[in-house]
């Protein structure tokens, strides 16, 4: 074997990647070659010094807890349908040259849109009103008028005498009825999940919670679960959890409570989830191994000391029975 061949072996041996046969061959050579022996010693002390001076960040428990918490939030956004990278956009990270170019492009785009909205005739500005065709009963239009917006011409009717267009007809509606009325529940669940204003979402959940939905309506339950798991506002999530506690405890609600306990960033909500699981101990499902597994995990790893203590207490109580 040439010296270059031995150099490869030296390198592998010093970094601890040599098999026994190769090591035997190398050691025989080292007994006779001073140059290689010197190189071998240098390499070994180099590796020892590297390992003694660790680089990078120490991946300690605190960093792990922070990373897990941030991941939970990103997963929540992902499940809610918002791409996780939306929160990562950082204008500061854009190189200065690109920043100027983007700024100029943005200004041009805003100018173009402003000019268009000011100088082009818009059908929406007219907002003609139509008589509403709503039926009488518990549902009635607020002012008996429908607001017409966003008129878009599909066919201008050249030659045929007929025109075709689309528009949005927005009618304010006032509803009055029992919370158990499926129509009322449908509107409330829609508001709970789709309203942009968190105050409205909270009021929708409140309405369901205050009156207490006795019926096991699948859609309402599913909307409450979605609100508890995905709403960006912790008040809405908590109110949804409270509403779910008033429904008969079943497998679906149990899983939702476990997910909230595992993933929610708010300690208060995690405590409420433990309480819900604890109070459901007497239900037909009882405290099964799924619940105990999660509680054990929380007792060991939750960032919040109170939750760890609480989880331990519930486990103790459950296993004592």
């Amino acid at each position: 074997m040439t010296h270059d061949g031995y150099r490869d072996l030296l390198f592998l041996s010093a970094s601890g990647d040599m098999d026994a046969d190769g090591q035997a061959v190398l050691e025989r050579h080292l007994q006779t070659c001073l140059r290689c022996r010197k190189e071998y010693e240098d390499l070994r002390s180099f590796h020892a010094a590297l390992v003694a001076h660790r680089v990078g960040i120490e991946p300690d428990e605190r960093l792990l807890a922070e990373a897990r918490q941030e991941l939970r939030l990103a997963l929540r956004r992902e499940r809610a349908g918002h791409p996780a990278w939306s929160g990562w956009f950082n204008p500061g990270a854009i190189a200065p040259l690109y920043r100027y170019a983007l700024g100029a492009a943005f200004t041009l785009a805003v100018g173009f849109l402003l000019g268009r909205s000011l100088f082009l005739p818009s059908a929406a500005q007219e907002t003609p009103r139509l008589a509403s065709p709503f039926p009488a009963g518990g549902v009635r239009p607020e002012e008996d008028e429908t607001r017409i917006t966003n008129v878009h011409f599909v066919d201008h009717g050249r030659g045929t005498g007929e025109i075709e267009f689309t528009f949005d007809a927005v009618t304010p509606v006032r509803m009055r009825g029992s919370i158990d009325d499926p129509k009322i529940q449908k509107v409330l669940t829609h508001a709970m999940l789709n309203e942009e204003n968190p105050g409205i979402r909270l009021k929708a959940v409140n309405a369901i919670n205050r009156q207490g939905v006795e019926t096991q309506d699948v859609e309402t339950k599913s909307a409450l679960i979605k609100a508890m798991e995905m709403d960006a506002n912790v008040g809405v999530r908590k109110e949804a959890l409270n509403a779910l506690r008033r429904l008969p405890f079943d497998g679906e609600i149990k899983k939702a409570m476990l997910r909230a306990l595992m993933s929610d960033s708010n300690p208060g909500l995690r405590v409420a989830a433990i309480n819900a699981l604890d109070s459901a101990r007497t239900s037909a499902l009882g405290m099964d191994s799924d619940v105990l597994d999660v509680l054990r995990q929380k007792a060991a790893t939750d960032d919040n000391n109170y939750i760890r203590v609480k989880a331990r207490a519930v486990i103790l109580e459950a296993t004592r029975q």
Partner: peptide, 27 residues
């Protein structure tokens, strides 16, 4: 995740970047 964070933390030199890698991996 401990292994993932450990690899990331040794590869970069800031805690924020290590957490970014961790999050991107699991997403």
């Amino acid at each position: 995740d401990k292994k993932v964070l450990s690899i990331a933390a040794r590869y970069v030199t800031s805690a924020d970047d290590a957490k970014d890698i961790y999050q991107e991996v699991f997403l």
